[in-house]
Amino acid sequence: MGYSSEEVYGKVQEVLEAALGVDDDEVAPGATLVGDLGAESIDFLDIVFKLEESFGIEIPRSELFPEDILTSAEFVSDGRVTPAGVVQLKERMPFADLSKFETNPLVQDFGNLLTVNDLCRFIESKV
């Protein structure tokens, strides 16, 4: 089933409003889910479930949250993602803009990377 970018954005906005209890004007394209919209780790379970319901798709958690890379001894050193790890992240998450993260790839900052726009691009790649 095809959705226009506007339809995807509208549905993602509805999901985030319901899951995070935020108002529609807070859900701006560049808003980060964690920093700006206050999502906590348990909210991602809720968000993924609601996105699956809303779009009729399946979302393996590892596609949105590459925890295996971020906790890998091969790709993380001294709390930073290695250049090889960044390559892996880019391959896994082509929908996310990692350019800023890349300049100082601290694992602890990764959680606050995902924006509303990233989420919309991810969904568009699935529907």
């Binding site: 348990i42 379970l45 809720d46 479930f49 699956e52 958690r61």
Partner: peptide
């Protein structure tokens, strides 16, 4: 039970 995964359930 609507959904169950490794980290939790809805």
């Amino acid at each position: 039970l609507c959904d169950i995964r490794g980290d939790g359930a809805i």
